[in-house]
């Protein structure tokens, strides 16, 4: 497989995780650790397939998923903000309930306990973007994807803009950094937090919708830990959208490489470990490098001070003269 095909594969694989990670950043910024992403994503998968089945169109299915998961996030937000429930346990509760309910509800909704296959007529249509499709290398990577992929690729930049150039973004960062000060300035922190948590739900639901609508089916446990991978990307990025994008690219690239290299005889378990090891390394490297460089820079500074300090020079001269007198 050549490099452009690999990159095209990366793009396809990273989009669901990217959407979920971008949603989780909103929660992360207001200091609510987003452990419920897995549950939101799985709910999005199931609801997207259900919506498509009911309404006959994948886009309506996507909207169905986004809205309902947003409502789920609203319930979570209510419990956390109004009733001061511990957000960790509430998130775990949501994960567990969603995992159980999606299996439970398959039978009454679809009448079958097998996996749900959608008709191929209901598949997401893929687009041939006019300008891009004629450029040879770029076409392989960015052409022939479904709508949400393109949205997701542009979203980090949109969110970066929202964070740093809009009022809401400012309120969000202020609420997260120091809530009392934000309240003192007059920001309605309650509204900010509600909107942030609901956005998390909306985007995570869209991520799940993308996953299941691309595969055109739903099976139990479809998310398979992608919510936690997104969590890792969020933590790696410390809440910055562009850095989260890079983190998701890293994970997507690793997944794509794993698919490729597995046919070369390397045991697949070691290949699957690769993204996780890389994530830890990438998390640990910057502080290590910083610490090391601090140490050397500081000691070099110290050395220079000691060499040029008049008092030290004077005392050295004194000692020299004392010693030479002996």
């Amino acid at each position: 497989m050549n490099i452009t095909q690999l990159l095209g594969l990366t793009v396809r694989l990273l989009v669901p995780t990217l959407l979920v990670a971008l949603g989780g950043i909103f929660s992360f910024r207001i200091k609510v650790f987003p452990l419920g992403l897995e549950g939101y994503m799985l709910a999005g998968c199931f609801l997207a397939v259900t919506g498509t089945y009911l309404f006959g169109s994948p886009y309506l299915g996507m909207a169905f998923a986004a809205i309902l998961v947003m409502l789920l996030a609203l319930i979570f937000a209510f419990f956390v903000i109004e009733l001061s429930v511990n957000p960790v346990i509430c998130a775990f509760a949501i994960n567990t309930i969603v995992a159980g309910m999606t299996r439970f509800l398959m039978i009454p909704v679809f009448g079958s306990s097998g996996r749900i296959y959608l008709d191929s007529a209901l598949a997401l249509p893929r687009f041939q973007v006019p300008i891009i499709k004629s450029i040879p290398i770029v076409a392989d990577i960015f052409n022939n994807h479904s709508a949400l992929v393109y949205v997701a690729l542009l979203l980090p930049f949109v969110i970066q803009f929202v964070y740093y150039k809009t009022n809401y973004g400012l309120s969000l960062r202020a609420t997260g950094a120091y809530e009392e000060a934000a309240v003192a300035v007059g920001i309605s922190t309650r509204k900010v937090r509600y909107i942030a948590l609901m956005t998390t739900g909306c985007l995570a639901g869209l991520g799940g919708a993308q996953l299941s609508l691309t595969a055109n089916l739903f099976n139990v446990g479809m998310t398979d830990g992608r919510g936690f991978t997104a969590l890792a990307a969020i933590v790696l990025s410390a809440g910055e959208p562009i850095r989260a994008f890079l983190g998701c690219i890293l994970f997507g690239l690793c997944d794509a490489l794993v698919l490729n290299l597995s046919s070369e005889g390397i045991p697949i378990q070691f290949l699957s470990m690769l993204p996780y090891i890389l994530a830890i390394l990438f998390a640990v490297m910057p502080p290590v490098i910083r610490k090391l460089s601090e140490r050397t820079a500081f000691s070099k500074l110290q050395l220079r001070i000691r060499q040029n300090d008049p008092e030290i020079l004077a005392s050295r001269a004194f000692h020299h003269s004392v010693n030479s007198e002996e």
């Binding site: 497989m1 694989l13 595969a215 398979d224 698919l259 597995s262 046919s263 697949i268």
Partner: peptide, 25 residues
């Protein structure tokens, strides 16, 4: 002939992508 192992009995996304790339090859 080739023997590949996606290491999953469940994840259709992975096998789908693998198969697409194999057909392309």
């Amino acid at each position: 002939e080739k023997f590949v192992i996606p290491d999953t009995f469940n994840d259709t996304t992975i096998t789908r992508e693998m198969a697409t790339s194999l057909y392309q090859q």
